[in-house]
Design a protein around this nucleic acid. Structure first.
Lengths: 136, 136
DNA sequence: CTTTGTGCAAATTCTTTGCACCAAA
DNA sequence: TTTGGTGCAAAGAATTTGCACAAAG
């Protein structure tokens, strides 16, 4: 079943984003690919089934999604921005060797005590190391 | 007293980096400016007293320092890489409003339980919110 | 109609590289 | 004389922007 497309559409509307074909395609991609893709990867993968898609539209869409809080922007890699549609509490791990970016589940995300007067909207934890595969 | 220059020199040598004038200047800058500057800021501030300095040298030096573990690379801001010479455990906070990047001290940095076989070399936690000034 | 989204190409911005020159060992 | 560091300008890569056209209400 492909309730995925409907889920993608709802996810957009829920955040006040008008669902166009392109936006739904990007949203659906992020929901189904938990690989923390770059804008480039999303574009490249969507292009064959959507050859009129423009890279600018992918960038615009991703910026909109982040702005509205529909997806997370991950800056664990200096070069490229990466995106994640999973908003459940979890942190990210990057393998120094193979470059894979993996999710690590946590019950709840740690936020340290903040000085008085400071408010925190969101927080991210990144770990760098070696993944199971590369540790052999 | 300006033991700072000596400290900068020692810090480089300790990590096997030959201390040149330029490298010491960058190192000293990072030690004395706890502002998490970008490469651009470092260059701009050093340039007046060192007009032969090249931006490429600043970038090369920063890359070398990060590689050797003398300074931390901070990717809390998508656009620019930022650098921090303080290696004590602390996390970073960015004010959504004024853009300031501040240190938050913690006794020890939280690292979640990792799946078996995964090893963690380093981890970073970023918080985004509003600073005390901007909360009024 | 009016508004909003899209595609394309050009422009920007940040960072890296190639190469010639210089300084130190 | 060999090695490594620096400066400069050019190259490269990622992302944004301007503008004209298309789509939808």
């Amino acid at each position: 079943m492909d309730g995925i497309k409907i889920l993608a559409k709802e996810r957009l509307e829920l955040h006040g984003i008008k669902p166009s074909m392109q936006r739904m395609a990007v949203m659906e991609y992020l929901i189904t690919h938990r690989t923390h893709p770059t804008a480039e990867m999303i574009f490249t993968d969507l292009y064959p089934e959507m050859p009129t898609l423009s890279k600018a539209t992918v960038y615009n869409t991703l910026n909109l999604l982040v702005e509205r809080g529909v997806v997370r922007l991950i800056t664990i890699e200096e070069k490229n921005a990466r995106y994640d549609a999973c908003m459940d509490p979890h942190i990210h791990f990057r393998c120094r060797n193979c470059g894979a970016i993996l999710d690590i589940d946590v019950e709840k995300h740690w936020i340290p005590d903040m000085p008085a007067g400071m408010s925190v909207d969101m927080s991210e934890t990144y770990c760098i190391g070696r993944c199971t595969k590369c540790n052999n």
